[in-house]
């Protein structure tokens, strides 16, 4: 089976986020007065060949931890994309 998996990479709490901060500073000028606490991140979509969903998620988690994120500053979450 081929499973479509989404990997979300976000900065760990407490790690400075210059991208999020810059976006947040631009919001009032655009009229988004009620939007706060912007945190920028990255999303990866991959297709994983595996026997079942658990296996696909295990592969994606390993990929996320070894390459797609830097565990020193980032967290990674994996989920199978609903079709």
């Amino acid at each position: 089976m081929i499973y479509p998996v989404v990997v979300d990479v976000t900065l760990r709490p407490g790690i400075a986020d210059p991208e999020g901060a810059t976006i947040e500073r631009a919001l009032p000028a655009l009229g988004f007065a009620g939007v706060r606490h912007v945190r920028a991140g990255k999303t990866f979509r991959v297709e994983v060949e595996a026997d079942d969903e658990t296996g696909a998620l295990a592969v994606a988690r390993s990929l996320a931890e070894r390459l797609l994120s830097n565990p020193v500053i980032e967290d990674a979450a994996v989920r199978v994309e609903s079709r």
Partner: peptide, 17 residues
């Protein structure tokens, strides 16, 4: 070297981008 784990910490985008 930080990505390889040979030095501690990480380098991020500069403040102010």
């Amino acid at each position: 070297l930080t990505e390889a784990g040979l030095l501690p910490g990480a380098l991020q985008k500069n403040r102010g981008l």
